[in-house]
């Protein structure tokens, strides 16, 4: 799709121009795109950078596994039972609207400083959207799927695992996409406070030292990762909603 590619490039170019413009207006607060990329390249080449990136990646991967696993474990059974879903949905939604940052001191007290607190904080961010989308995905399925499964003598568990869950996959992927970005947010916030390792820690460190190029370089790298992953999930979602391709 050449037009799609052209559009993307156009958006990128406008973004870079705007960035450069802000740099001219406030050179002390924002490094130029070229300067940021140079600093990022420098960091990527430095052996001291990789343990931090690895720490963040590991914490994020664990959080994502817990958020998706837990979200499906909560959302799919709720979706099976309309009454439970009606009770569960407002609880999930109000949990989601809770400003989770206020819970961070509690999480630190429970899990202590380190990896487990970050993972817990990332997980509570991502779990709820995955659960809500999985629940609604199952609720919205035509009732005839469950009836057909019963007529083919499937157990309740096989009905869920072999029919309802696959049927709800497009919705689940949407939940995972949204869960993905908020889990990343949670892990990052977790690293920014009371952490000695990870990209969030590097970012806070750079803010403390007023090392603007490093700040911007970390933001660029994390942002590029998040945008790419989101685009990939969005493409997958698109394919699933309009299957078969």
């Amino acid at each position: 799709m050449p037009t799609r590619l052209l559009d993307t490039l156009l958006v990128l170019a406008v973004g870079l121009l705007a960035w450069q413009g802000v740099h001219w207006l406030a050179p002390d607060a924002v490094t130029s795109p070229a300067g940021t990329v140079a600093r990022a390249a420098e960091m990527l080449a430095s052996p001291r950078f990789w343990p931090h990136a690895g720490e963040t990646a590991w914490a994020f991967a664990l959080s994502l596994v817990f958020a998706i696993g837990g979200g499906l474990a909560i959302g799919l059974p709720l979706g099976l039972h309309r009454f439970s879903a009606e009770v569960g949905e407002p609880i999930l939604v109000s949990l989601y609207s809770l400003p989770k940052i206020t819970l961070y001191p509690v999480i630190l007290l429970v899990f202590g400083l380190g990896l487990s607190a970050k993972v817990a904080f990332g997980t509570i961010h991502g779990l709820v959207p995955v659960a809500i989308f999985a629940m609604n995905g199952v609720l919205a399925l035509p009732p005839v799927y469950a009836r057909a499964a019963r007529a083919l003598r499937l157990s309740r568990w096989r009905t869920l695992a072999a029919v309802l869950a696959p049927a709800a996959v497009p919705e689940i992927v949407t939940g995972v996409r949204i869960g993905f970005s908020v889990t990343l947010l949670g892990v990052f916030i977790g690293e920014m406070f009371s952490s000695q390792r990870g990209l969030g820690f590097l970012l806070m460190n750079a803010i403390g030292l007023h090392d603007v190029p490093t700040m911007l370089a970390i933001i660029l790298m994390v942002g590029a990762f998040a945008v790419t992953a989101n685009a990939a999930l969005l493409a997958l979602e698109h394919r699933l909603h309009h299957r078969p391709a």
Binding site: P142, R147, A167
Partner: peptide
């Protein structure tokens, strides 16, 4: 059992 609704699995 065969149902009135389309019960084929699209995936």
């Amino acid at each position: 059992v065969v149902f009135q609704e389309d019960a084929s699995f699209p995936w």
